[in-house]
Design a protein around this nucleic acid. Structure first.
Lengths: 205, 205
DNA sequence: TGATGTGAATAACTTCACAGCG
DNA sequence: CGCTGTGAAGTTATTCACATCA
């Protein structure tokens, strides 16, 4: 029923709510919540309405309770193992990024196709050969992968991940990936984001 | 007139068209173009129609000509200097990323607030103190910035960039930024992208 | 004939506005 | 009285379908 945009906003609300919780704020209205988000109060209420009634009319939302609800909706309650394919500079940066761990994601399997990297350890994890993706991911029942490989290898890696039974892919390779239905893919193409900005630089201003 | 989504798709079309050009494809229909893009043929035609008539009825689009047209629309014809604030692992990865350079963006000014980093050189560029952002960017007339700083410093850095006359910001800090109207900001929040995927992992499958 | 360009129709998304509850 | 939850209204975006042109 709810769509992807709603889900992304829920994650944004969650970020704000956590911030508010740190500041010991206990109750928040949809109006106040949107002060640090590009969304309207009605939008917040509609988004939440997809999943239940979490607020108190005339009062607002209990911050802690709403955090728990959204975490439950997004499925952040349990820890999740993540595979990282492509241990270059970007891969290394993501591996070191604390933002993932904070929300229950733990990168716990590394893969690369470079013989000089295979077998080495980073952050206590051994880099495996990409040909072992299927074996390792099946054994360890890993369902989430992040790919930071060159565009030319992206489809091959995606095929291996699909064969390994992966369910969602966060892809940083600037390339279209042909993936069977049912597997969720989210591509972050940083060059394209910059190109868009170039448009606004030339036209909108 | 055209909206942000149209612009983003144009950048995607461009990526495919460049790929086709490398393969020596000379003519392409809107139908064939969408084989490697999540968009409909009608969508392609509508998007392009915002900016003119680039196709030949009964034939299709000349690949080379369409590339030139889209590059012109997006404003990719000229080289652009980019400032990078926050020279951590992610910043270093972006600095090394060839995808930006390929499309006319050149990271040519580096800033950090860490005394141990300030003054050092990476890729031939000296890391400057963030307090010098305004001075350096004004002098060199840099209008684009990429920020890869911790959430806690993001707003302060954004304020400095605004004071320096920056026009667009590609922000990787997981934090809302309060920016005056007229300045374009695009936030890539990788943790939030993963959180969204967690939802689909738990519900959609 | 075959693919574009485009008004008209549809679908998706957002905001409005207000009843109802604490 | 204030803020939620929500049907209705409005807006934006996408797809359809076809006239048109090479």
């Amino acid at each position: 029923m709810p769509h992807e945009k709603t889900i992304k906003r829920l994650a944004l609300y969650l970020r704000s709510l956590r911030y508010l919780a740190e500041k010991r704020v206990e109750i928040i209205s949809s109006e106040k919540l949107t002060e640090h988000i590009h969304a309207s109060p009605a939008q917040v209420r509609k988004d939440l309405a997809c999943f239940g009634e979490f607020g108190v009319p005339g009062v607002g939302y209990q911050v802690k309770k709403l955090i728990a609800e959204i975490e439950s909706i997004l499925g952040l309650k349990e820890k999740r193992e993540v595979a990282l394919v492509g241990i270059g500079k970007l891969g290394g940066a993501l591996l070191a990024y604390t933002g993932f761990r904070k929300f229950g994601f733990r990168i716990s399997a590394l893969f690369d196709n470079n013989p000089e990297k295979i077998g080495k350890k980073i952050s206590g994890l051994k880099i495996e050969d990409v040909v072992r993706i299927e074996e390792v991911l099946k054994r360890r029942k890993i369902k989430i992968a992040i790919t930071t490989v060159p565009a030319t290898n992206a489809q091959e890696v995606a095929n291996r991940l699909v064969a390994a039974g992966i369910k969602v892919i966060l892809n940083f390779a600037p390339h279209y990936l042909n993936i069977p239905q049912g597997i969720i893919i989210n591509t972050i193409d940083m060059a394209i984001e910059l190109e868009c900005l170039a448009y606004f630089l030339t036209h909108k201003i």
